[in-house]
C-alpha cells in the first residue's frame, strides 16, 4: 500500500509522441480535409486541449493558421468543447468532456484522429468548430417554466420529494455539449431534449406547462433535422454527465400523455 502511494506521488512519466490527423476546414462553405501533424514530448499530465494548444503554438511559429476548436471553462461544465476523438465524442474516457481528457489515456506513438461533431443541424463553422445553436432553438421552443421575475411564492411553499429533486438534478446536469448527437448513429438529440423535459416533469413547478412543453420541444427537434432515437444507448455512454436513457423513456411518456390526454 505504502509503496503504491509512494509511486503515484513521485514517478514522473515519460513524455509522449503522437501523430494527429485533424479535420481542417476554412469555413462553412469550404471543402475540408484531414491534415497530419507530428507532436513530440507531450506530458501525460497535459489535457487534450492543452496538447492542441501546444500544436497551435507550433503552427503559429511556422506562420500557419492554428486549429480552431470551441472551448471555454476547461473544467467540464460550460459544454463548449467537444471533439470526436478516435471514434468517440470527448475521447477515450467515461463521464468527461474533451477538456477533462488527459494524454495519459493514450499510448506513446498513438495516432489520434480528431473530427468535429457531425450532424446536419450542427454545421461546421471552421475546422473543429460547429454551430450548435439548434440546441438553443429547442430550449426557446419551451425548455423553461414561464414565470416572470417577481411575484413568485416563497420557495418553501413548493415542497418537492427529495427523490424527485434528485432525479430532476440528474437530468438538469446536462451541459448542452452535443456529445449525445455526435455519438448517436442517427444524430438524434433525444437525450438532450429529454434531459430538459424530464427535469421539469419531475418538479411540481413544471406541471402547468408540461404538455405544451414536450410537444413543442419535440416538434422543434424534428424540424431542425435531428435523427430518430433507436435506443442504442450511445448517447448515455458518451454523455459527460452520464445522463441516463430513463429520461428519454420519461419524455416518451410525457409525449404520449400530452398527445392522448390533450
Amino acid at each position: 500500500m505504502s509503496l503504491l502511494r509512494y509511486r503515484s506521488e513521485i514517478i514522473k512519466f515519460k513524455e509522449m509522441n503522437f501523430t494527429l490527423k485533424i479535420w481542417r476546414q476554412e469555413n462553412a462553405r469550404a471543402k475540408g480535409r484531414f491534415e497530419t501533424y507530428q507532436l513530440q514530448d507531450i506530458s501525460p499530465d497535459c489535457s487534450f486541449l492543452e496538447m492542441l494548444d501546444i500544436l497551435n503554438q507550433q503552427l503559429i511559429d511556422k506562420f500557419e493558421k492554428p486549429v480552431c476548436f470551441d472551448h471555454d471553462c476547461r473544467e467540464g461544465i460550460c459544454g463548449a468543447c467537444g471533439l470526436y476523438i478516435n471514434g468517440r465524442p470527448h475521447g477515450p474516457d467515461k463521464g468527461i468532456t474533451t477538456c477533462q481528457l488527459h494524454m495519459r489515456k493514450f499510448k506513446d506513438g498513438d495516432t489520434i484522429v480528431v473530427e468535429p461533431w457531425r450532424a446536419k443541424p450542427f454545421p461546421v463553422i471552421k475546422d473543429l468548430v460547429v454551430d450548435r445553436s439548434a440546441f438553443d432553438k429547442i430550449i426557446q421552443a419551451g425548455g423553461f417554466i414561464s414565470v416572470n421575475t417577481g411575484g413568485v411564492p416563497d420557495a418553501n411553499t413548493i415542497p418537492v420529494p427529495r427523490k424527485n429533486a434528485d432525479i430532476a438534478m440528474d437530468a438538469a446536469a446536462c451541459i448542452g455539449c452535443g456529445a449525445c448527437v455526435a455519438a448517436c448513429k442517427n444524430a438524434s438529440a433525444m437525450l438532450f431534449v429529454a434531459a430538459k423535459v424530464s427535469q421539469f416533469a419531475m418538479l411540481p413547478q413544471g406541471q402547468v406547462e408540461a404538455k405544451e412543453r414536450v410537444l413543442k420541444m419535440v416538434q422543434k427537434m424534428d424540424e431542425l433535422g435531428f435523427g430518430n432515437c433507436t435506443n442504442t444507448g450511445a448517447c448515455e455512454a458518451e454523455c459527460p454527465k452520464e445522463i441516463s436513457l430513463s429520461h428519454i423513456a420519461r419524455m416518451n411518456r410525457e409525449y404520449f400523455s400530452a398527445t392522448f390526454n390533450a
Binding site: F144, I145, V152, I158, V160, M169, Q205
Partner: peptide, 13 residues
C-alpha cells in the same frame, strides 16, 4: 431563491 425555485432550479432538498 423564490425566483429560482419557481423557474425549476433543482436545489438540494
Amino acid at each position: 431563491i423564490d425566483q429560482c425555485v419557481a423557474q425549476g432550479v433543482p436545489f438540494a432538498r
